[in-house]
Write a protein that binds this DNA or RNA. Structure first.
Lengths: 133, 133
DNA sequence: CTAAGACCTGACACTGACGTCAGATGCAAG
DNA sequence: CTTGCATCTGACGTCAGTGTCAGGTCTTAG
């Protein structure tokens, strides 16, 4: 599998894939001419990396975590343990933060709805309270 | 109130306050010498801005939303209505994304715990399942 | 064989919310 | 008055992930 194929499969740009390799998140074998070759395993790996990126982990953090996934040993298992929990807590904290921000936005929406009502607007969009959490 | 006081009250750097003004998020009266003066109202305003930043809104988006908060009129109420909902949906989407990422991390934590168990580690940190969502 | 397109490395550009520095001015205390 | 800290403007630096370009090589279809 060549880099363009992997990019197509994962929806990640070729540039990003090369960047991931540069950061030590991804490995590739090379053909004689130096072109990167990947196996199907890398598809899941790239998706996994993307998921961690989406969680706000930096490439450095991901790079520290991945060895534990790849070949868990006593050392990196211990080292990863704390970090995994740290990152998990960070995500939970971030979710709470976003929920609070959403509440603030809901207040704005309420205020706005009242204004619109006073101005004779018809609310044809579901009310804030009815939107799924 | 001078800019340093506002910074102290809100925990936001002086630099950021000037940046907010530059972006049209914050206004200040000026003394004859040109120094910024704020009222107590700005404290809440800055905290509110921070909250929207925390929600991932850009300064441009915030700048578009704030007029509706300050002096709601028919025009900006209508304009803000859709955007408010868009941003709310974005936040909800982001929260879901983070929750999925956290699930992925939980899987890693489980794998890690098993390895540690096999290696005779004692799990003295609450298990992933017991951590509050 | 040849042309087109994929790939290579290396480098610079960009975004956004700031940090930081320089050089000048303001202001309050001793 | 002076000393020292706060403030001013303007400009450049940062970070991280990615876009993009240049100039060259590889591969594959016709």
């Amino acid at each position: 599998m060549r880099i363009g194929d992997l990019a197509a499969q994962t929806g990640v740009s070729v540039r990003s894939l090369r960047y991931y390799e540069e950061q030590g998140l991804l490995v590739s074998t090379r053909s004689q001419s130096g072109q990167r070759r990947y196996t199907d395993n890398e598809i899941a790996r790239v998706r996994f990396i993307q998921r961690l990126y989406a969680a706000g982990l930096s490439s450095r953090t991901i790079a520290e975590l991945l060895p534990c996934v790849d070949s868990p040993t006593a050392q990196n298992a211990d080292a990863a343990w704390e970090q995994l929990h740290e990152e998990r807590d960070r995500i939970t904290q971030r979710i709470d933060e976003l929920a609070r921000a959403r509440d603030a936005l809901d207040k704005l929406i309420d205020i706005n709805r009242e204004h619109r009502a006073r101005l004779g607007r018809h609310t044809d969009i579901p009310s804030a309270a009815s939107i799924s959490r």
